[in-house]
């Protein structure tokens, strides 16, 4: 465990609280992609299967896993019930099947081992790397976002970005290297790069998030 990883995990945790806070404070889920949330739930459910047999291995990991699964399920529940009037299927239209299909294909081609758990783990890593695309696509269609939504996206993107120095650290200091997670994590961070740039040049300088 190193500082980058802890900061990454905390950033992930914070992003979920910001998302829930966004819905509570604006009483709306406008601007949030239901498709991306559903993809994340698939990611957590397929990656954290091991929670049933490693519960005692690390209380930290197990509790985080539970929080990620439950909070994402709760977010989806809120979006489909309390805040459903703000859902806009006309804007949230990204072809998610391609993402699930592509991640499935990569998982079957390159798992560390051919076991159900390992293939699902690999699937979850690839799916996570692209799960944000429906959300970014939606953002591009609307051309603007509420400031709190951009804080959510920043915290979510920062999580995987912070994992990159963590992987470097572990590679050099612990001899641990996870090629699947690292390649997928770099792709995931690259997908955010435009967003990070606009967040840095606009939101952090007190301006509204608007696409040029």
């Amino acid at each position: 465990m190193n500082l980058f990883r802890i900061l990454g995990d905390l950033s992930h945790l914070v992003s979920i609280f910001i998302l829930l806070q966004k819905m509570r404070s604006t009483r709306s889920c406008a601007g949030i992609s239901l498709r991306t949330q559903i993809l994340y739930l698939m990611v957590y459910c397929t990656r954290y299967l091991d929670i049933f047999w490693t519960f005692n291995a690390s209380l930290y990991n197990s509790s985080m896993k539970l929080v990620f699964i439950l909070s994402t399920a709760y977010t989806i529940y809120l979006m489909r019930t309390v805040y459903k009037t703000a859902l806009d299927p006309q804007i949230d239209t990204f072809a998610t099947y391609y993402l699930v299909g592509g991640a499935g294909l990569l998982a079957v081609l390159f798992p560390y081992k051919y076991t159900v758990y390992e293939v699902l783990w690999s699937f979850s890593i690839w799916l996570e790397s692209v799960a944000i695309l429906p959300q970014l696509f939606m953002l591009q269609r609307t051309g603007e976002a509420e400031t709190i939504t951009t804080h959510y996206l920043f915290a979510l993107g920062a999580y995987r970005a912070l994992y990159i120095p963590n992987w470097l650290y572990r590679w050099f200091l612990e001899g641990h290297f996870d090629p699947i997670a690292t390649v997928a994590g770099i792709i995931q961070t690259l997908l955010y790069s435009d967003f990070f740039y606009i967040y840095y040049t606009k939101v952090l300088k007190g301006k509204k998030f608007e696409l040029p």
Binding site: R5, D9, H12, R47, D50, S58, N61, M64, K65, F68, Y112, K113, W121, Y163, N166, H176, D178, A181
Partner: peptide
């Protein structure tokens, strides 16, 4: 023999 990959991250 290659050591098995541990999944100890989130």
């Amino acid at each position: 023999k290659k050591e098995e990959q541990k999944h100890d991250e989130l």
